[in-house]
Amino acid sequence: MELNSVLEIVARTDPGMVRTNNEDSVLANATRGIVILADGMGGYNAGEVASGMATALLGSELEKTLGTAGIGLLESSRLHELLETEIARANGAIYQMAQSQPQYAGMGTTLVAGVFHDDRLTVAHVGDSRLYRLRGEDFQQITRDHSLLQEQIDSGLLTREQARLSQNKNLVTRAVGIDPQVQPEIHEHAVLPGDIYLLCSDGLNDMVEDDEIGMTLGMLAANLELCATQLIQMANDNGGRDNVSVILVKVKSAYPARGWWQRFLAWLK
């Protein structure tokens, strides 16, 4: 099923105000409903290599499989499996590269990847790159960071407000390419027409408060390009200490994999 008439997608990445290189990578394919964002880490250009490999490898495999097979109504579990397999594969490739080439030793990347299918969005993430959703007035963080701070918030050691004051930002507890195995977190969410999704690297959410991000999405929903520019500009105006990447997805209408009749038949089986 082709989704380019249903999804409007804008992907943007910016080095920020301090860094000379950009270790973030973004990939979007509106036809297949695929969005991927990765924030690399590692010395020299290793971070770029890791995030670039993650988006390219995962993107091409997802495009290939979704292009030929198409994931239907009853096949959510297959999509889940597909994401797991392909993230494992990308992890293996980055890990191998890091092991075999000294200049890439220790490189890794965070990852947040979404696949839109059948009025749903399946999201896989590793590390602290995030997915947010604006639905009506409600702006919410959908993914939960794999980070030291999130663990401290969960354990009650820190409140969300205190976490903003922490000096332990940017410490992730999971990353792609660091170990031979990686455990992505994968969830499926119902999608409604009018929803706006935001994938971003910590360069955005560390520099701009969630309220401000949500307000920007709400105000500039009619013009996603401008919205992306504005978000990056806000991060840079606040200091732009890290690379900033955003992918915005606007859902223009419903996109069930089959009509109601096919759904009914499938239900009978």
Partner: peptide, 14 residues
Amino acid sequence: VVGMETSPVAAPAA
């Protein structure tokens, strides 16, 4: 802590 590179940090703008 694995594989970090030093980069100059400018004074915050804003």
